[in-house]
Design a protein around this nucleic acid. Structure first.
Lengths: 70, 70
DNA sequence: TTCCAGTAGGGTAATTGGGGAG
DNA sequence: CGTGTCCCAATTACCCTACTGG
């Protein structure tokens, strides 16, 4: 496997899996409580993807942009 | 339009093989542990195809729909 | 055939969601 | 108005050993 630096492909169909972050990871990045991140998602300030069990996952790209000040 | 197959793998007998994903691939897409994907399959939340050795394979189409909130 | 990363199990600890009060 | 903390139930992550897939 020639995984250079941008290793992202996980599906053989040329399908690109999107990098996601857990609530705890986002909370750490913003230096807030995970509950606060959940509130942001509920308020629509932050888009979230749900696991089949109901847990939230956040787009790394979106979080990075918000951290960078957009 | 006789064969409107957009672009699919060839199969003897005009049979269309369905794109399948491994537990690790599905786990990466949802940002969860492969064991969690197995749990989803056992709970019936996600349909799975079993290999002759007992390993599970998942339909890429179904996984993508679940990811997109379908 | 051998090799080994990945998977299936089971069991237990850690996160998360949701509500609600401060 | 926004955040951190408490509760409980549900979901998920990590531990191990044995077997499968390419």
């Amino acid at each position: 496997m020639a995984t250079t630096t941008t290793a992202a492909a996980a599906a053989p169909g040329g399908f690109e899996p999107e990098p996601l972050l857990t609530p705890a990871e986002v909370a750490t990045m913003f230096r807030v409580d995970p509950k606060t991140v959940t509130r942001w998602a509920k308020a629509g300030r932050l888009s979230s993807i749900r696991t089949l069990g109901g847990h939230r996952r956040y787009r790394e790209m979106e979080v990075r942009e918000l951290l960078t000040g957009r």
